[in-house]
Simulated scan of single mutants.
Amino acid sequence: MRSSLSNDVYTSAAYGDKEKLQRLVESEGYSISDPDGHLSALNNRTAAAQYIIEHGGDVNAADHTGQTALHWTAVEGAIPVAEILLQVGARINAMDMYGYQVCILDTFIV
């Protein structure tokens, strides 16, 4: 259970605060398996994205709209995080609830 946004694992990922993210996960037992961790991809936080992956984050997990972290990288043009996700097996053909795939979002080219 999350206590507040200031101590939130997802907020730490979104702002790229890897030290806080590490403390919350390793010392306080917070989970990084929820797709909301995709905020690190949305904000192009490579260190946070790498940390989430190294600690069990599922690169193909989908949020409530069916979007994966790779979808968010395409929307935001977050190429460095997209490269990390693709290297560890992110599915480029994953489809969200609207039928969008990464390769047709914005101008993202793989």
Rank of each mutant, 00 (worst) to 15 (best):
A62S: 13
S33Q: 13
S27H: 09
R45F: 02
A49E: 08
D34P: 09
Y51R: 09
R45P: 10
P35R: 09
A41V: 03
S27C: 07
A61R: 11
G37Q: 08
A62K: 15
I32S: 06
N43Y: 12
G57W: 00
L24W: 07
D63M: 04
D63C: 06
S40I: 01
N60K: 09
N43V: 04
R45E: 15
E54G: 02
D58P: 06
H55L: 04
S27Y: 03
E26T: 05
D63F: 03
N43L: 07
V25N: 07
P35M: 12
S40G: 15
H64G: 05
E54Q: 14
N43T: 13
G56F: 00
G56S: 05
Y30A: 12
N43P: 02
V59G: 08
Y30I: 00
D63L: 02
T46M: 05
G29Q: 11
E26D: 13
A48K: 03
A61H: 08
S31C: 03
S33I: 03
H55N: 15
I32K: 01
V59H: 07
S33G: 14
I52P: 04
E26G: 00
I52A: 11
A49F: 00
A49V: 05
H38Y: 04
A61F: 07
A48H: 06
G37I: 14
A48Y: 10
I52G: 02
G29W: 05
G57R: 00
E26S: 09
V59I: 07
G29V: 01
S33M: 10
A48N: 10
E54R: 05
D36K: 14
D58F: 00
H64C: 13
H55V: 03
I32V: 15
N60S: 02
G37R: 02
T46D: 10
R45S: 12
L42V: 14
V59F: 05
I53C: 06
T46S: 13
I53V: 14
L42A: 12
S27M: 07
L24I: 05
H55Y: 02
A47K: 10
G57D: 09
G37N: 07
Y30W: 08
A61V: 11
A49H: 06
A47L: 05
D36G: 04
A61K: 14
Y30C: 13
D36M: 13
H38S: 15
A41W: 12
H55C: 07
N43Q: 15
N44Y: 00
Y51W: 14
N44A: 12
E26C: 03
S27F: 04
L39C: 11
A41H: 07
I52V: 05
I32W: 02
I32H: 03
G29T: 04
G29R: 00
A61L: 10
A41E: 13
V59A: 02
E54H: 04
N60H: 03
I32N: 09
V59K: 06
I53E: 03
G57K: 04
N44V: 01
A47E: 15
N60D: 10
A61M: 02
D63T: 06
H64S: 14
Q50T: 09
N44W: 05
D63N: 15
Q50L: 11
R45K: 15
E26V: 00
D36P: 00
L24C: 02
L39N: 12
Q50Y: 00
P35C: 07
A62D: 10
L39A: 09
H55R: 06
A61C: 08
G29C: 01
